[in-house]
Amino acid sequence: MKVRIVNKSHQPLPEYKTNGSSGMDLKAALTVPVVIKPFERALIPTGLFISIPEGFEGQVRGRSGLALNNGITLANGIGTIDSDYRGEIKVILINLGNEDFTVNNGDRIAQLVIIKYERIEFELVETLDDTDRGKGGFGHTGV
């Protein structure tokens, strides 16, 4: 699938690093470093603008190494880029670690995954079909 992209970041385009990769690294597009103190958030630009085809969405996901090693993750869990959005991709990072974290120009800050989705139409009913699980949730199968 071809996706149109505008790159104003002076960084290479995102790319898959291995044949099995589902995500591509997004890099910071900064003129000066950004320091994120513990439990603070920062909006980091990427300099990328994309045109996602209808029926698909872009998901911005955290990088596991940043989370494990530095406590840096996405403040919104997973960011959604709708197919009709044409603005710059920006990443909301939060520092859940104990130390200041500096984001520099070109740092890999998140991953971009393109996902197909289905739109639904709700059908209002009085009851739902029964399943073995039923209403069980929140640890009902044990530890």
Rank of each mutant, 00 (worst) to 15 (best):
G47S: 03
H10F: 12
V91E: 00
Q11G: 06
L13I: 14
Q59F: 04
K116H: 09
E126F: 03
D107P: 05
G20C: 12
I5P: 02
H10G: 11
L74C: 05
N7R: 12
D107E: 12
R41V: 03
P14R: 02
D82Q: 09
S83R: 00
D129T: 15
D82I: 09
A42H: 00
S9A: 07
P45M: 03
G47M: 08
I115R: 14
V35C: 10
S21Q: 08
N95P: 08
T141M: 06
L124M: 14
F138H: 14
A42K: 11
Y85W: 08
D82H: 03
L96E: 04
Q111L: 13
N19I: 14
E126H: 10
I120K: 13
P45E: 01
D132Y: 06
L30V: 08
D82L: 05
I89V: 11
K17R: 12
T73F: 10
L124Y: 10
R61I: 04
A42T: 04
G106L: 07
P53R: 04
G97A: 12
V103P: 00
A75W: 00
R119G: 09
K8F: 11
D82N: 14
L128Y: 14
R133V: 07
V3P: 00
I52S: 04
S51P: 01
S9E: 06
N105I: 03
E123G: 02
D100P: 05
N104C: 15
V3S: 01
D84W: 11
K90V: 11
G65D: 05
G65Q: 01
D25G: 05
A110C: 11
K17C: 08
M1E: 09
V34I: 15
L30W: 00
G55W: 10
G134C: 00
R108H: 06
I72Y: 11
N19S: 13
T18F: 10
I120W: 01
Y117F: 15
G87H: 10
F39D: 11
E121T: 15
R41C: 11
G71N: 14
T80Y: 08
G20T: 01
T141D: 02
L30A: 06
P53L: 03
K2M: 10
V143L: 15
V34Q: 01
Y16E: 10
E15H: 14
N7D: 07
L93M: 06
E88H: 05
P38A: 07
N19Y: 09
P38M: 07
S21G: 13
D100F: 08
L30K: 01
S51W: 12
A75P: 12
S9Q: 05
K8N: 09
L66S: 10
E99D: 10
L96W: 12
R41L: 11
N98T: 14
A28T: 08
G47R: 07
T131G: 02
E121M: 09
G77P: 06
I78L: 11
M1D: 07
F49C: 03
G136P: 09
I114R: 02
N105A: 04
F122E: 14
V3L: 14
D132I: 11
N69E: 13
